[in-house]
């Protein structure tokens, strides 16, 4: 029997073994590399320090809730990840790649892996909801049929299918944020950045936005940074998880004996410094007077 024949015969004998031996280690290796990593990142505006040697990592499938008062450097972290700002020192890694010295062309490639949800939605006023959500795909020259299918899928995900032909000016604040989320999710980015997505929203709408973030974390395996200064957002994200029930509907359940959430951590910033990094229950027990005041509001 020739070696070619041997190879052909051996292929179907143990297909599972081949799948395991090839894919699992690669996938494991992929999961070991953090989605986002900051190493000693410093940033100054004129002589004012904005970020003071910040180091942290966001693992795959993890949500990092970044808390802190206004002007603490929360949104700056997001701008650094997107390459909209450059650090004065330190390194930033996205999927293991050091983006610190990347030029605009390389950053464009990195930005395709990232979905960004802005504070007020930042929708393009002159474009309809459809065109806003389709923006990234239109720029990449994707055929219109495929674009339409993807846009509808994303609008279904944020429960806004009916608003497809509306202009941003016709939408409420909560709807704008949800369109912003749909636009960020198009192209299936593996990293999602939320910049105070619930600021100024009524509690039920804010809850809806948090549910979308939970769905992305638990059902889509997205790594995310959720910048907020609202404690109830943290409560939802660190105590609830999303599952699909037997009818195929998404259900939100409280962590407890059945499941303990390990994929959500908190990072607290104050004047550009990390003053806390850990779990939500550890945060509540932290002795720092600033943290205590932040949690209780007095």
């Amino acid at each position: 029997m020739s070696p070619e024949e041997l190879e052909i015969q051996s292929e179907p004998l143990n297909p599972d073994a081949e799948e395991i031996s090839l894919e699992t280690p690669t996938d494991d290796l992929h999961r070991v590399v953090p989605a986002i990593e900051f190493r000693e990142v410093e940033l100054f505006f004129d002589d004012r320090i904005i970020l003071d040697k910040i180091s942290f990592t966001v693992r795959r499938g993890e949500t990092k809730v970044v808390l802190g008062g206004s002007g603490g450097g929360k949104s700056t972290i997001i701008k650094l990840i997107l390459g909209l700002l450059k650090p004065d020192s330190g390194q930033i890694f996205i999927d293991g790649e050091d983006i610190t010295e990347f030029d605009e062309i390389d950053l464009m490639r990195i930005r395709r892996k990232i979905g960004m949800v802005f504070q007020e939605g930042a929708l393009f006023d002159s474009l309809s909801v459809y065109e806003n959500v389709a923006y990234r795909l239109h720029e990449e020259g994707v055929p219109e049929e495929e674009v339409e299918h993807e846009v509808k899928r994303m609008l279904r995900f944020v429960n806004l299918e009916d608003a497809i032909d509306k202009m941003p000016v016709e939408l409420s604040g909560g709807m704008r944020r949800r369109v912003g989320i749909a636009r960020a999710l198009i192209g299936n980015p593996s990293i999602i950045l939320f910049d105070e997505p619930t600021a100024g929203l009524d509690p039920p709408t804010a809850r809806t936005i948090c549910e979308l973030a939970i769905k992305l974390r638990d059902l889509e395996d997205a790594s995310s940074i959720f910048v907020t200064h609202e404690m109830n957002n943290l409560e939802y994200l660190s105590s609830e998880y999303a599952v699909i029930d037997e009818h195929g509907d998404v259900q939100f359940e409280q962590e407890g004996e059945k499941l303990c959430l390990i994929n959500t951590e908190v990072l607290m910033l104050r004047n550009g410094e990390i003053i806390f990094s850990g779990k939500e229950d550890e945060l509540k027990c932290a002795p720092d007077p600033y943290i205590m005041k932040f949690i209780r509001g007095k």
Partner: peptide
């Protein structure tokens, strides 16, 4: 209104 930042974040110059 951060639309320029959004444009850059979506990979457009």
């Amino acid at each position: 209104s951060q639309q320029i930042d959004a444009m850059r974040a979506l990979g457009t110059s």
